[in-house]
Write a protein that binds this DNA or RNA. Sequence first.
DNA 1: AGCACGCCGACT
DNA 2: GTCGGCGTGCTC
Length: 802
Amino acid sequence: MTIAKVIVDVPASSINQTFDYIIPERFQDILQPGMRVIVPFGPRKIMGYVVARVSESSFNRLKEIIDILDLTPILTPELLDLGKWLAEKTLSLYITAFQAMLPQVLKANYKKELERLTDAPLSEKLEIFFAGRDFASYEELENGGVSFYHVQKAIQAGDIAVHYLVKSRVTKKYTTFLKPARDGHLLEEALQDMSNKAKKQQEILAFFIEHPEEIELNSVIKQFETTRSVINALLNKGFLTLLKKEVYRNPYDDDQFEQTNPLELTEQQQAAIEPVKQHIKDNVHDVFLLHGVTGSGKTEIYLQAIQDVIDKGEEAIVLVPEISLTPQMVRRFKGRFGSNVAVMHSALSHGERYDEWRRIHRKEVQVVVGARSAVFAPFENLGIIIIDEEHENSYKQEDSPRYHARDVAIQRGEYHRCPVILGSATPALESYARAQKGVYKLSTLTKRTNEKAMPEVNIVDMRDELHAGNRSMFSRSLKDNIAKRISRGEQVVLLLNRRGYSTFVMCRECGHVQECPHCDIALTFHKHSNQLKCHYCAYEEPMPMDCPSCSSDLIRFFGTGTQRIEEALTQLIPEARVLRMDVDTTRRKGAHEKLLNQFAEKQADILLGTQMIAKGLDFENVTLVGVLTADSMLNLPDFRSSEKTFQLLTQVSGRAGRHDLPGEVIVQTYTPEHYSIELAGHYNFLQFYQQEMQVRKQFQYPPYVYLALITVSHQNHVKAVQSTQKIVKSLWKHVQQDTVILGPTPSPISRIKDRYRYQCMVKYKQEPGLRTLLSKIIRQFDDDVRKDDLQISVDMQPYQLM
DNA sequence: AGCACGCCGACT
DNA sequence: GTCGGCGTGCTC
C-alpha cells in the first residue's frame, strides 16, 4: 500500500479522476485516506484529497507526495464515499463535492514566489524588482514593470527559480494564560516575604497557591480589578509565567442559556415519537415525515429523540433553514444540551465556523444544529438526522454541487442505520406524496400543545379597496386593526412578500424602464445611496434626473420596498414605532438578533419585514399579523408558486397569538379566490395538497415527474441557442418515449453579465441512464467550454427555474 | 485550471 | 534578433 489515490484541487472535467502518487517512506505510517496532501502536478504544487491507499498503479512514472496537511483524516471513509456519491448524483466534480463538505478555511490558497539563485547581476529591471532581497512574491511582478519574458529567460538561465506554495487559510485563535512558575511551597515563601504594600500582588499570588492551574490572563485582571502592571511585577519576579494557548472561538456564550428540562408530551406527540425512539434503539433507518401545525411541539419531539441518541452514545444532526434567522432555535438546543451542541451557519465568521467544525471533528460535541451544509458534519456514529421546516428552499444548494440536504440526509441515514425526521407544518408536496405512498412514515400533529385554536385569518380583497377609493398599500381593515392593537399595547408583525416585486424605475411619460446594460433585468432602486443597482452583477448607476429615453422628468420608481411601506405606515399611524427588517437592516453581523431583541423588549409596536420574519419567531405579545401582498409570488414563472404561497401564508399566520392573547391574521390580496390563499386561510393543508397534486398531474410536474434543467450560456446569442439545440437533439435520440424535453428556451433571466442564457428542461418518469447520458453529451462540448468560454450547468433537481 | 512550449507576426 | 500573442496539449 505504497501508493495513494488522490483527487486533486483542479476543478476541470478533464481532471475529474484520481491521480496516483507514491507515498514516501516517512509518510508510510501516518498517511490515511481522507487526509489532505500537497502533490506535484505538472510544474506546480497543489492540494489534493487522498481517497484510497493501494499497492499498485497502472501508471509507471509516479511522483511522490510532497507533504501531508492534516494530522488526522478530515474526511471519514463514509464521507469519502458520500462525496463520490454526491458528485455523481449531481453531475458535479469530485473536488467540488469534497470542498462543499468542509469549512471554507480548509481550502488551499496558492501563492507563487520568486527566488534569486545567483549573486551575478540580473537584468536591470529584475535588479530593481528584487532590490537586494532573495525572495519576492510573484504578484509584485505586475506592478514592478518586469515582463514575464524576462522572468522566463532568467529562469531558463538558472538565475532565479519559481516556488509554488500551498498555503493554509486556517487561522487559529490564541489567548494568553497565566500559571504559577514555581511549586506551591516556594510561592508560599514568596508570599511571606512580599512587601505589605503590594496588596494586589499578594491577593493574586494567594489565589494561585490555592488554584495552581492555568487561567486566562484577562479574566484574572478582571476578577482582581487590577491592571497588567501588577501582573508584570509578578512575572518579573518569576512567580508566574505566561503561556499562549489555542482556544476555540465560541460564537455563543454557553452560560447565557438557561437550562431546560424535558416537557411532558401530549398524546399526539407521544404517538409520534414512539416509533422514532424504537428505531433509534434498534438501529433501523426510516424517514419520518412529521406533519405538525405551528405550535404542536415538533421541537420538543426532536429534543427528546436526541436525548435518546445522546444516552446511547451516538450523535445527532439538526438542520434548520438559516439559523441566524432563528436564534430562538439555538436557545432551545443549547438550553437542553448546553455545550454539547455545535452551531454551524452562514452568519458565523470563517474562523468561528472552523472552530465549531473542529469541535465536531474531535468528538467534543454530540449535537450539531446548522444550516444546509451541516448535513456533512463529520460524525461517525450518527443516531438521528432531523430536518426542521423540511419544505424550505434553502436546503437546496443553488451552485455546484447542486444538492438537496434532504437527499444527503437520507443517504447518510441509510449508511448509519438511523432515522431521519422531516418536520414541517406545510410539507413539500414531494415529501407528502412519498408519505402517502408509504415511502416515508407519516406522523401528524393536529393539536397545539397549548390547546389554543389557530388565529383567525381574514382575507381582504384589495380590488374592493380600490373601488372604495383606497389606493394605499393598507386596507381599511388592516389599518384600523393595527391602530387598535397598538392602542392596547399589543404588537403587530407585517410581512411584505417581496419576491417578484422590486423597486424598478419607470418613466411615466414613455414607459421606459431602466435596465442593466449587462443583464436582461430591470435595475433596482436603492434609496439610501440614490443609486440603481443590478442584483445579478456589480453594475450600478446614479438615479437619473430625467428619462434617458424621452428626457421627461416624470421618471419615478415603482414597486414597494420595505422603506416605502415604513414611510407610508408612519404617515398613516404616526404614533406607531416601526422596526424594519430586511436585507439592508440586517446585513451587519448580529444585527438580526439585535432587531429581534428590541422587538421582544417592546421597543417597537410593529415589526415590518420580508420573508425572513415568517420563520420560527415567537413573540408572546404579537396579536396581529398582516400580509400586505399575498399574491405577489403567484405570477412567477415557477410551478411551485402556489405551494410557496401556501407555505408562506401558513407559516406567517402561526406567528400570531401563540400565547395567552388571541391572535388574528389579515391577508391582503388581489386574488382571494386562488386556492392557495383561500386554503391557507383555513389551515387546510390536506385539501391544498390534493388540489395542487391535480395541477401537478395535469401539467406533468413533480412529484409526478422528475426534472433536470440544463442551462447554457455564452457571450454570443447564436452560439448559446445552437449549443442548447445540439444538446436537445442528442437527448431526444436516447431518452424513453414518455420523456419530455422542452427547449431551447431563453432562461427567465435571459442575459446575465453579458452572457446569453438558454435552457432545456427534461421531464421524465423513468430514465436510469440519464446521468450517464448527460455527462456524455456535455463531454462533447469540452472543447467549446475550454476554448470558447461556453458554460453548461446541469441541475438534477431544479428548485429555481431561473 | 494553469502552465510550458512552440509557432507566428510585428517591431527595431 | 527581440518580444509578445495565441493555440495546443498535459498534468499521476
